[in-house]
Design a protein around this nucleic acid. Structure first.
Length: 589
RNA sequence: GCGUCCGUAGCUCAGCCGGAUAGAGCAACGGCCUUCUAAGCCGUGGGUCGCAGGUUCGAAUCCUGCCGGGCGUGCCA
């Protein structure tokens, strides 16, 4: 509708230009927007205000000329010139009413469109190191990434969602050694636990599995293990050095096969736990891509080799540097350390090269805000590898702060002192958690008040919206109980009877839905949906309170049923995108 | 220091690709259940849009500079 109006306005301004009434070189791109105030019509344009200065004419006078040259169309009720020179458009109400039939006809697919047709996009999100359970921060990335993927799919994009499993680095060795130490304790050895090891209870669980499966096969005396190790941080030493020494000792004693067994046990249990959490949270991936698979295929060597060929790396101080400053980064980055090991960044370069090789038009990475320093270097690498930097869009999701009893909780994965996503889901429910996570713009900090989230009682916007949905189902149950049935055809035929203010408002807001999906998708802003759904639910609740739907007048009754059924469908479609259930019954605990 | 995100009602936040009187929820106060679920509805009060300049017919919105807060600034991952 907007587009059609823009076309009309373009015709009008072009005519003015051709006739020399308006003497301007270029007409700025014309914009038409929905009005906030109904007295300003349905849509409005500020062309006249934009054009007034170059045309040397007063805005209102120019607006009048534009209106005079507007082609006639049957769907426009009237136009008005208002304020400083806005042109307000009033649409024929018949047009707005058509939305009801469209929603009922398309059902689940209403709102889906082809604005992203033919574009292949890879959305990578969460990708937390498989060293422990997901915490509440990961939950935000998960909810955001899943909602964004759904939104893009609704806009016709071909979406591939992916979790990158960092299963090849030092952190995994720390996990393995942590598991082994817990296993040894369970086997009866007494030895200190490293300060830099993973402290969480889940490590005990994995150690227990190992003990059950292998009995004493992986056991060595504590003295053998601890001989000649440097001091841990607890004894005035360096915790990082200590754990590295412990890793070496572990690998030496166990040998490659048994070490791999411990390593694999830790990885598979933690990864399975993460996958289960995400699945239960309604977050599904098309692919779980392991860093180790890139290592096995020599992807890192290949990527670095390609950079070497293009002259983008050089040796310095015994290390290999990627000259990212040549691509706008603030400093060069090491890809291979002086000890011969590749850096985390090197594997990221390989991973992004891999993404490009798979032929995606756009790559969307959802990262925690603490990774923002990485954007420049990854884009630099992509450019060096021959991609356009705009192909990669990094969405930074700001931190989630937890509050309990008015105090902010400090969290650390290492110490095991954190609230897990699972704990949060269990206390608030998946629906509330999904909704709250996407309610804010991603670049906005999220204060999560645990007490409030745990309080089961009320005030939750998600319940408000779900209740609106359930109420409609309830009306249809009532209808059946009274021995009546909904005649959709008759209702659609009687839509002109929907003249009440609430009804008009509801129709108007429904008409915005598809545009909202397109805009929210383009701007990667699923949160817009939460505000929209609240608005729509608000009107539906008001309407419910103000009017009876099951009335004696059969035509009016069926028309109203069409209206609320269509509203319900939109609520369901919207909730579906943000991963929240649309219940037919609301129950109190 | 530099980079980046943020600063709008008592609280949490929309609005920010310039537009018409700045919005919502919560909290506060007052009403509405013999009518399709009161997890609801109706109403009232509440704002120097961090501060100061600039651009513009027009600035919460764009630019500059301050002030305040978060995060980052590893041959860690």
């Amino acid at each position: 509708m907007k587009d059609q109006l823009i076309e009309l306005l373009t015709v009008a301004t072009d005519t003015l230009k051709d006739q020399g009434v308006v003497d301007v070189d270029s007409i700025p791109s014309i914009r038409v927007e929905r009005t906030r105030d109904p007295s300003h019509g349905d849509l409005a344009s500020n062309v006249a205000l934009m054009l007034a200065r170059p045309a040397g004419m007063s805005p209102r006078k120019l607006a009048q000329k534009i209106v005079d040259f507007l082609p006639d169309v049957d769907w426009l009720e009237k136009t008005e010139i208002a304020g400083p020179g806005f042109i307000n458009f009033f649409l024929k109400s018949r047009l707005a009413i058509d939305i009801i039939g469209q929603v009922l006809e398309r059902g689940e697919t209403f709102g889906c469109n082809e604005s992203g047709k033919g574009v292949r996009v890879l959305v990578e999100f969460v990708s937390a190191n498989p060293t422990g359970p997901l915490h509440v921060g990961h939950g935000r990335g998960a909810a955001y990434g899943a909602s964004l993927s759904n939104l893009l799919k609704a806009n016709g994009y071909s979406v591939h969602s992916e979790y990158y499993v960092n299963d090849a680095g030092r952190q995994m060795d720390i996990l393995a050694v942590s598991v082994w130490l817990r296993y040894l304790e369970l086997a009866g050895e007494r030895l200190p636990f490293p300060v830099s090891g993973y402290q969480g209870d889940y490590i005990w669980d994995i150690g227990a599995t190992l003990h059950r499966q292998s009995r004493d096969a992986l056991r060595y005396p504590a003295e053998t293990i601890l001989t000649d190790l440097p001091a841990d941080a607890a004894d005035g030493g360096d915790g990082e050095h200590y754990i590295d020494a412990l890793i070496e000792r572990c690998k030496f004693l166990l040998g490659i096969e048994k070490y791999r067994q411990v390593h694999r046990q830790g990885l598979t249990e933690v990864t399975a736990n993460i996958a289960r959490d995400l699945r239960e949270f309604g977050v599904e991936y098309d692919e779980w891509l392991a860093e180790s698979s890139l290592v096995e295929n020599n992807a890192i060597e290949d990527a670095i080799g390609q950079l070497r060929q293009s002259g983008d790396v050089e040796e310095r101080d015994g290390a290999l540097w990627f000259k990212s400053t040549g691509y706008g980064d603030e400093k060069d980055r090491v890809v291979q350390r002086d000890n011969g090991l590749y850096t985390y960044f090197a594997s990221d370069v390989a991973y992004h090269m891999n993404k490009l090789e798979r032929g995606y038009d756009r790559l969307i990475n959802i990262w925690g805000a603490d990774h923002h320093g990485y954007i420049a270097r990854v884009k630099a690498a992509m450019t060096a590898l021959g991609a356009r930097p705009e192909q990669l869009e990094v969405m930074l999701v700001q931190f989630v702060s937890l509050y309990e009893g008015g105090e902010q909780l400090k969290m650390s994965t290492r110490s095991g002192n954190f609230i897990t996503l699972r704990e949060l889901r269990q206390s608030t429910g998946n629906d509330a958690a999904r909704f709250f996570y996407v309610m804010r713009r991603p670049e906005q900090h999220l204060d999560f008040d645990i007490d409030l989230a745990k309080s089961q009682t009320n005030k939750n916007p998600v319940y408000y919206i779900q209740y609106a949905h359930a109420r409609v189902s309830s009306v249809f149950r009532q209808l059946q109980e009274r021995g009546l049935h909904w005649d959709m055809e008759q209702g659609l035929d009687a839509l002109e009877d929907l003249t009440e203010e609430h009804e008009q408002e509801l129709i108007k807001v429904m008409g915005r839905y598809t545009e909202l999906i397109v805009d929210a998708g383009d701007r990667h802003e699923p949160y817009q949906l939460t505000y929209y759904l609240r608005d729509l639910s608000q009107i539906l609740h008001s309407y419910y309170n103000a009017h009876q739907f099951i009335v004696d007048d059969e035509r009016l009754r069926n028309a109203r049923l069409c209206l609320i059924k269509a509203s319900q469908q939109i609520i369901r479609n919207g909730l579906n995108i943000i991963g929240v259930g649309a219940p037919h019954v609301m129950r109190r605990d």
